[in-house]
Design a protein around this nucleic acid. Structure first.
Length: 876
RNA sequence: GCCGGGAUGGCGGAAUGGUAUACGCGGUAGUCUCAAAAACUACUGGCUAUAAUGGCUGUGUGGGUUCGAGUCCCUCUCCCGGCACCA
């Protein structure tokens, strides 16, 4: 009997030992400018909260890390960075809650976060971490804003915006869930405010067009497609029937131009331009009607969002006193004003076709408006029914007999031919509202000059750059690149005011500046930008955290003159961080580092499908168009991981089922936690956390520990069964790792362990392979045992084992035997050679089992249908 | 309402159209022990049965395709997620 060399398994001792060694060896510090096979493995960075890291954070980080370690062992130069998304309402609200200043709070929390993240035993390169609250970071967030402004993508618009009464700030559409605030669940109201917007809608079609080419989770692609929400249809023009005045055209958008003949009235939104004209111009409208309109509009304006939601589909409206003329029949159609038509979508006006649209139908029934059928319905031909399905076009003059939806293209081209309208797509996507009337964010780097505004001057006139459409930016100047960052000052009264004005607006020392255009007294923008702007570009910054001259590496920065006259003023001759001899290489460094982009794989939560991921795509696309990036999609591959739940329910403080990582790591060690988190369910689906489950995994680690503390160093020849098992395991685990199927990879490793435990002693070659395969999950244990079996360098520097098919050819083959057209029997037999099919079949036929079941029937091997590795169909 | 994704033992979950339930948890029995824990070994879908390497049945419901279906197609039921007066 061999002597048991097992030392008591003490996870904490080996974790400390190896993490220290990795740190000293700078094992995971990657030289970005000198990578042979760049591989950018990025995980979403967290926003720090006071409780520290949630088990969900550890779940995501260690999952990403397992993949990164695997890729590293495959020979890639894997870059795995991490940082903190520390600005924003979430952090600020917490600071408010505990009565601390966000700046102070941030510093306290940050330390704890990094400590916890480092305890997870990842190969994160901590020398390149970043925080969005760092002025060296938000300097570039502000630079990005300036670029957006200069390229006409950042505009100021007066708009009805979502306003959260509790957070006291405006919210983007994406941050309103069921009419409630994403963060605090208060009912969101509407306010009319002038705000900064990014014109993401300008990119709607491109954001949509690129989706099929992305190697992303299908469900995320669908969610983005739906969010952008393209509706194909047509813009149609109706003349407003006003005899005594010049003709006014009413443009409407419809997805159903085929039902044009079925239109019996028009509806415009209460905010529609025409409504204002009713009062301003000398339309001969009955004063009584005007009074009614005024009353209606007032009631709509005062209607809180809550009421609108609870009212559901109950529609209200009022007759405008005006008529439109049907473009094809010339018939008079009454124009109604109703708030079920949204001003923000399409043209804010519709043609109502009550016979074939549910909303129009409800409205027509309520106000006794006529209903005219123009699509034949299969069952119900009753005159007043609603039919939205496919069918033949009727009562429509020359369109009769055409089919909906098949012939809609023909109809649109006919409409265009007659000059009545044209094909047009509309999008659900709205512009990105950037302004926040809060304190805890990067100040928007803009200056407003009243004097210039009156003279209609702006940065655009000063720089002689073409102004953006719709908005000329009168009075606005961006802060010069050399004056960035605009520092967020430390102020005591940082609490939101709730008046639609930022806390910074109480600080003249902050907002009083001179106009960059005319030099007179001007005012700084006092709003800060949305947190999502911070995270829309952070993946670029990880590659340049040591640079002050450029925000991120890009070959385009090496051009002495940037394509845009308004581009960033880059001085390539000088560099703060490097000695002069090195700075000559700065240009090539820019090129080399940029080879990590776009991000090779991005891993994060599916909940960011339409927020962060869309903003990051838009930002990248915009930077590409500005000439700063040579790619337009930020993430080549995106992998959405699942959520970890507890006892079948989402973890929440109110349910008291929150799992914190620290006690678990304390009790079992990080390797057990890492293994268990990978094992409890598929990474893409998440899973249910069980206390007994993690105990089981701990037992497993202890067994491995024991087994590999006692390996044989004698290079005894392995039996073919053992070689086969080894290669099968390598193959299976490699394939699983490639697809991020960690749970099944671990199951295979456990199964392989069970096999090895039936052998007398484990050979060193088996042990090596085993430790390499398990290293991505349990790096410290693998490292220690690797050392124990006599290997000197790190297991993570070794190459991921490869398998050879020749050891796997012996396999089980199932055969189905057909005798006289009937299936006689289905059998399983083991064969040794699948290369030669006749040999396989002969072997099969010689098998006692087959002979018995065939009952004397003669089978011609040539007639056997052979499917490699699968099934043999015998036909007699 | 619309768009996604699901439903497999007592539980978490495996299964390129080919022996359903891998792997883990839990359970039962045993070894060790004065005893317990730990560790190890065997068994563990259900019903039935033992002469056997037995029979029947079994992946939410009901059909279909196929020699063969958890897997593909259609019907329904339920659960989870997202969007929602978007013309």
């Amino acid at each position: 009997m061999k002597q048991d060399k097992t030392i008591q398994f003490d996870p904490h001792a080996i974790v400390g030992k190896w993490q220290e060694k990795w740190r000293l060896d700078k094992l995971y510090q990657i030289n970005l400018g000198n990578a042979k096979r760049p591989y950018y493995c990025l995980m979403m960075f967290p926003y720090p909260s006071a409780e520290g890291l949630h088990i969900g954070n550890i779940y995501m980080q260690t999952g990403t890390d397992a993949f990164a370690r695997f890729k590293r062992m495959q020979g890639y130069d894997v870059f795995e960075p991490m940082g903190l998304d520390a600005f924003g309402i979430h952090s600020e609200n917490y600071a408010l809650k505990i009565g601390k200043h966000p700046m102070e709070q941030g510093r306290l929390v940050q330390e704890n976060f990094y400590r916890q993240m480092e305890a997870a035993g990842t190969m994160i390169d901590w020398s390149k971490k970043l925080e969005t609250t760092d002025p060296n970071y938000y300097k570039w967030t502000q630079w990005l804003f300036v670029q957006m402004f200069k390229h006409g993508l950042a505009v100021r618009k007066k708009a009805k915006v979502n306003f959260c009464p509790s957070c006291k700030t405006v919210l983007a559409d994406e941050q309103v869930i069921d009419g409630k605030c994403e963060r605090c669940s208060s009912v969101v109201g509407k306010r009319d405010l002038e705000q900064w917007f990014f014109k993401i809608t300008k990119y709607s079609q491109r954001l949509l067009d690129n989706i099929p080419g992305l190697d992303w989770d299908e469900k995320i692609k669908i969610a983005q497609t739906n969010w952008i929400g393209e509706s194909k249809g047509a813009i149609l023009k109706f003349k407003v029937d006003i005899p005594q005045s010049k003709s006014i055209e009413l443009e409407i958008f419809t997805t159903r131009p085929d039902t044009l003949y079925g239109s019996t009235f028009m509806v415009i939104a209460p905010e529609h331009e025409l409504v204002k004209q009713i009062f301003h111009e000398t339309f001969s409208i009955d004063p009584e009607i005007k009074k009614e309109i005024r009353k209606y509009i007032k009631s709509v304006q005062n209607k809180p969002e809550e009421e609108r939601l609870t009212e559901g589909k109950e529609k209200t409206g009022v007759f405008s006193g005006l008529f439109a003329l049907h473009p094809l029949t010339g018939k008079q159609l009454p124009i109604w004003i109703a708030d079920y038509v949204l001003a923000s979508y399409g043209t804010g006006a519709i043609m109502a076709v009550p016979a074939h649209d549910e909303r129009d139908y409800d409205f027509a029934v309520k106000y006794s408006l006529p209903i005219k059928h123009v699509i034949s319905s299969p069952e119900n031909d009753s005159h007043n029914s609603l039919y939205v399905g496919a069918g033949e076009i009727i009562n429509s003059d020359i369109w009769n007999g055409l089919l909906y939806p098949k012939d809609i293209v023909k109809i649109i081209s006919d409409i265009e031919k007659r000059g009545v309208g044209k094909a047009k797509s509309n999008y659900h996507l709205r512009d990105w509202l950037i302004s926040r009337q809060r304190y805890w964010g990067p100040p928007i780097p803009m200056i407003y000059c009243e004097k210039c505004a009156l003279e209609n001057k702006s940065w655009f006139t000063q720089s002689n750059v073409t102004k953006p459409e719709e908005w000329e930016g009168a009075g606005w100047y961006p802060v010069g690149d050399k004056d960035l960052p605009v520092l967020l000052p430390f102020i005591e009264d940082f609490k939101p005011l709730g008046t639609g004005i930022s806390p910074l607006a109480n600080h003249p020392e902050f907002y009083n500046v001179k106009c960059p255009g005319c030099g007179s007294d001007a005012r700084r923008e006092t709003d800060v930008s949305d947190t999502f702007l911070d995270s829309a570009w952070y993946f670029l910054r990880y590659l340049a955290t040591d640079w002050n001259e450029v925000p991120f590496p890009s070959p385009d920065f090496t051009k002495a003159n940037l394509k845009f006259t308004n581009g960033f003023d880059l001085d390539l001759s000088h560099n703060n961080h490097k000695s002069s001899s090195e700075s000559a290489d700065f240009s090539s460094e820019l090129v080399n580092r940029s080879r990590f982009l776009p991000v090779t794989i991005y891993i994060g939560g599916a909940e960011h499908a339409v927020l962060h991921l869309l903003y990051a795509r838009f930002t990248t696309m915009a930077l590409h168009d500005m000439g700063y990036l040579d790619f337009e999609e930020p993430f080549s591959k995106f992998y959405a991981h699942g959520l970890i739940i507890k006892d079948g329910a989402k973890m929440s403080k109110s349910k008291g089922n929150v799992i914190l990582p620290d006690p678990l790591i304390e009790k079992f060690g990080i390797d057990t936690v890492r293994l268990y988190l990978r094992f409890l369910g598929p990474f893409e689906q998440g899973g249910d956390f069980r206390d007994t489950g993690i105990e089981g995994m701990h037992k497993f680690i202890k067994r491995i520990w024991k087994m590999f503390s006692n390996v044989s160093n004698q290079g005894k020849e392995l039996s073919s069964e053992r070689v086969k098992m080894m290669h099968q395991t390598i193959k299976g685990v490699t394939e699983d790792m490639e697809g991020l199927r960690f749970n099944t990879a671990i199951a295979k490793l456990m199964s392989y362990y069970n096999f090895l435990s039936t052998q007398n002693e484990v050979n060193v070659s088996e042990a090596k392979i085993y430790l390499q395969l398990i290293a991505p999950f349990a790096p410290h244990v693998a490292e220690e045992l690797w050392y124990t079996i006599g290997e000197s360098s790190s297991v993570h520097l070794s190459k991921w084992p490869s398998y050879e098919e020749k050891y796997l050819v012996s396999e089980e083959v199932r055969i189905a035997i057909q005798v006289n057209g009937k299936v006689r029997e289905v059998l399983a037999i083991a064969i040794n050679d699948s290369q030669n099919k006749v040999k396989v079949i002969e072997l099969a036929l010689q098998s006692e089992k087959v002979k018995r079941h065939l009952g004397g029937a003669i089978i011609d091997p040539a007639k056997v249908i052979y499917v490699p590795g699968k099934v043999l169909n015998f036909i007699v």
